[in-house]
Amino acid sequence: MVNPALFQNSLGLSCRYILTPFLKLLLLFFLLRGQSYADDELSQITARLVKTPITQGDFHQQKHLKVLRKPLISTGSFTYHQSKGVIWKTLTPVVSLLLVNESKLLTGQGEQAVPVAFGKVFKAMLGGDLSALSDGFSVIGTDQKTSWQLALTPKDELLKLIISTMQLSGDTELRRLEIRETGGNVTTISFDNIIHPTQLTAEQEADFERLSP
């Protein structure tokens, strides 16, 4: 097995690109909903999504690690804002906050590097250049009456070493996300109570404020 920790470059910089497939995906997904495009399944699915600038809801995350007999379970809430980024607030088992936009990533451990790809996708999507999605992943979609599914396989060699597939599914919203790692670990996140407020709360505004330079 290849250890992800080994992917460090000689400048002494840890490689965050491979560490955040999930976040990237999440953002990708939210960005998708802002687009309307033609024939393929990707576009049909996109067309079904509710399109608003703000999305918020609760999440329930299960990480099945090979070494552990039971899954790591965490719950909390998330907020996405079209231009401001994402607030990922974990409430159980420990309270922690993760804030991210295209140029900044803040966690309980302080500021961290933001993957370039992250900002790239963010921008490409906002700019309407959806080919960026299929640049990074091979996408297979199935669109059924009530629900849809997307299976993404990374193209990037480095990413391939870590992630085997990622599955997204939902209806008018993204409901479930599954990441299968090559090492056998599986992360599943389900999203509930999704709403689309027209305005951010003061607390959310304050959180996003921390991201502004």
């Binding site: 250890n3 992800p4 920790a5 840890s14 965050r16 491979i18 560490l19 955040t20 497939p21 999930f22 976040l23 999440l26 995350q61 990480k63 690690l65 070494v67 552990l68 790591l72 965490s74 990922w88 974990t90 088992p93 420990v94 922690s96 993760l98 990533l105 966690t107 961290q112 870590i162 790692e181 090492g183 670990n185 992360t187 996140i189």
Partner: peptide, 12 residues
Amino acid sequence: NSPIGQMQAANL
């Protein structure tokens, strides 16, 4: 539990 914690989890 963090969404960016893949590396730590894999090293566990």
